[in-house]
Structures are given as structure tokens and as C-alpha cells.
Write a protein that binds this DNA or RNA. Structure first.
Length: 359
DNA sequence: AAGATATACAACCGCCCCTCT
DNA sequence: TAGAGGGGCGGTTGTATATCT
């Protein structure tokens, strides 16, 4: 049950319907000169209200009054206030109302972010282990930039942390061939859930079950979810091309946090792997089974969305044979143009955030 | 030593989804 | 059933710090 809604706190007043009201001057019976002068002023008013109304209609109202909330870095006092309030009262299921109750001049979303990414007691910052590197790379290869899901598999890590780490360090490590990955497993589980296993076994457990190569031009993905994981068992097919590709197996995703599962699908395309927000599709479940790799080395190419593929079996992961030695990279498989390192094929995200580029 | 450049990461933005009325 | 509002997410930006020239 959600908390009672709060009234608009932004600079606008009333409901969105009321905000659509446009000032309409009466000009009946006025002389032309007066009419003209009125027209000029009214035109400005109309223009203002038109722009204002359109602006309101086009986008949603802000969650808080941006003019009256503090922004920027949090002070230690604010941190203490927020921590104390949340630990004492909880969030109450309403972050928007929380800052007012807690006596903070901050946007509710800002409070939420600060708590989740920084103040939460179980947070780990920095110091990513090699194991975590592998895990992140593996999951990134499977699902792209679903940072919240990836982070949910790493105890103490936040999506923001993982995202920043990937963008600033790990991506470069991968490009430099300093991250080892291993394939041949079809049941990825959380890092936390396998902590007790020997390292090599854990890596095997987390390795890629999903492969996509650039020359695999057509695919049909058998989408299913694991009833054991809490998902609804469902099987669906996604025809991406008239010539279907039937994957050799099913990838179980029981380890992924079901609570964060929303409508996303994983698809294969000519560009390789991609994950699409299903807002543009009819898919009900976010993840499903994917063609798993059955130790076919030629199929074990990992597409990081960089515009190239890695040979996972022979290339990136070499611990089996060479201990901690750096992996072998295959330049013929990779376009290392650094500028090209950017997740691609995340159609939903690109669409969703296309407007952001205007900022 | 100083300015330029690179790096790291906290914080923000705007969108979408879900729930409630 | 439509609209409002909040939560959550991924992408981007801003800024402090580190490194380089």
C-alpha cells in the first residue's frame, strides 16, 4: 500500500488539467490601437502560457520544487539527518515526503539516491575484486547495461557504483584484455550464493551462457522463465528473422533478482546481443532462456556491444592453463577503436533517453 | 610550479512502469 | 479506464582529485 499522495510541490499550481487552462483575453469592441496594444501584451501572455502549457503537457511535473530544494553534494549534517531518520522511521514507502518529515531541504529522489548509493549500511565502495570484475563483465555481456540487476548480484555494490566502475575502469580493462572470462555454464547464479564454492567453480557457474556473433544474422529465442526463481513459468518465442536460429539449450536465470525484473527481453540481432526494453514489445518477462553455449568454441564469442566479439573460450579467459596470466586477445575479433566502446543495441534505453542528449 | 588533461564518482535528469484513485 | 503520482532505472553531467607536460 502506497502512502497518500502529496500535492504538487513544484512551482505549478493545481492539477495538470488546471494547468492546461490558457488565458483568453476579451477584445470585443476595442479600438484598433488599443486592440493592437492589448494584442501585443496579450500575445506575450498567450505565448508565455502556450509555451508553459505545452511544456507542462509534454513532460510531467517535477517531483519537487526545484527552486526550494538544495542540490549538489551532501553535507555531513544532511547525511546524518537522513541516516538517522531512515534508521529510526524507515522510508515509509514514500521518498517524496521523506525530506519534509526528516527536515531536509532535498528532493525526495535525491534522498533516495543518497541513501541507496552511499548511506546504506551494507555498502561497499571501491576495491572491486578481480572476481567481481569477471562477474560484471559476464553479466554485462549477457544483459548489457542493466546495472541494477548486475549490482543486485554483487553484495554491497550499488548500480551506480558498478556503472561508474564499468565506465571508468572495467571497460578499459576489458579492452586491454585484462579481464578473464570463462564460458561453458548455463546456470549463472549470484556471486553471493556461490561464495562457498572454489573460485574456479564459481567462475564456471557464472560464465556465459549466452553467445552472439556478428555473423549470426537470424535468431529465434526461446524465452522462458524459471518457476523456481519466482518468475512465472512461461515460454515464448521471439522471431527476429524469417530464418530462425534455434539455440542449443536453455539458459536459466534463476539467480537474477526477481524483484527487479521488469519487461525486458534479450534478443539477438545482426549486431550481436542486445537487450530491449519491451515497452515496444509485447513480451511479458524481462529475461528468458537464451541459446546457451555448449562448449562450441566457435560459438563462444562474446559481444560486449562494442562492435566486436570476444572469443571467450580461447581468448579472454586463460586461467585454466596459465594461472593468473593475462588473457590472450584476438585482435582479429576486436575493433579496439576506443571511441566505439559504447553499449549498443539497447534499443529501449536509446529510445528512452534519446531526449537526454539535448541537455 | 603551473596549467592542461585525465580520471573517478557523486549527483542529477528525464523517462518508463506500476500502483492507486 | 484514464490519469496522477511515486519508484526505479540508465544515461549524463559536474566537480574534485590525480597525473601529465
Amino acid at each position: 500500500m502506497k502512502a497518500k499522495r502529496v500535492a504538487y510541490q513544484s512551482g505549478t499550481e493545481g492539477s495538470s488539467k488546471e494547468r492546461h487552462h490558457v488565458y483568453k483575453p476579451c477584445t470585443k469592441g476595442l479600438k484598433p490601437t488599443v486592440l493592437f496594444s492589448l494584442f501585443r501584451s496579450d500575445f506575450c501572455c498567450l505565448l508565455f502560457w502556450f509555451v508553459f502549457s505545452v511544456g507542462v503537457a509534454m513532460g510531467r511535473a517535477p517531483c519537487c520544487d526545484k527552486a526550494n530544494v538544495k542540490r549538489g553534494p551532501w553535507s555531513p549534517d544532511e547525511d546524518a539527518t537522513l541516516r538517522s531518520y531512515v534508521q529510526t522511521h524507515g522510508t515509509g514507502g514514500n521518498w517524496i515526503a521523506l525530506p519534509r518529515k526528516a527536515g531536509l531541504r532535498r528532493c525526495g529522489k535525491s534522498c533516495r539516491l543518497r541513501w541507496l548509493n552511499y548511506l546504506r549500511p551494507d555498502i561497499k565502495h571501491g576495491g572491486f575484486t578481480e572476481e567481481e570484475d569477471h562477474f560484471i563483465c559476464t553479466l554485462y555481456s549477457q544483459m548489457g547495461s542493466r546495472w541494477s540487476i548486475i549490482a543486485s548480484q554483487l553484495p554491497g555494490r550499488t548500480d551506480n557504483d558498478v556503472k561508474n566502475y564499468w565506465n571508468t575502469k572495467l571497460k578499459k580493462k576489458v579492452m586491454a584484455g585484462k579481464v578473464r572470462l570463462k564460458t561453458n555454464c548455463d546456470n549463472p547464479t549470484t556471486l553471493a550464493s556461490t561464495q562457498s564454492l572454489p573460485y574456479d567453480q564459481r567462475v564456471q557457474t557464472h560464465n556465459l551462457a549466452f553467445s552472439a556473433t556478428q555473423n549470426r544474422s537470424s535468431s529465434t529465442l526461446s524465452m522462458s522463465t524459471d518457476a523456481d526463481s519466482g518468475f512465472n513459468m512461461k515460454t515464448q518465442s521471439l522471431n527476429l528473422d524469417p530464418v530462425p536460429y534455434y539455440g542449443p539449450g536453455i539458459m536459466h536465470l534463476s539467480g537474477f533478482g526477481a524483484s527487479t525484473m521488469k519487461n525486458h527481453i534479450v534478443s539477438l540481432s545482426q549486431e550481436g546481443s542486445s537487450i530491449s526494453d519491451s515497452s515496444s514489445s509485447a513480451m511479458d518477462n524481462k529475461f528468458g532462456s537464451l541459446p546457451s553455449t555448449e562448449a562450441k568454441a566457435t560459438d563462444d564469442l562474446m559481444d560486449f556491444g562494442f562492435g566486436f566479439s570476444y572469443d571467450l573460450v580461447n581468448g579472454l579467459y586463460s586461467e585454466d592453463k596459465a594461472g593468473d596470466a593475462a588473457p590472450i586477445c584476438y585482435p582479429e575479433l576486436a575493433d579496439f577503436t576506443y571511441a566505439e566502446i559504447k553499449p549498443q543495441g539497447l534499443n529501449g534505453g536509446e529510445n528512452r533517453h534519446g531526449d537526454n542528449q539535448e541537455n
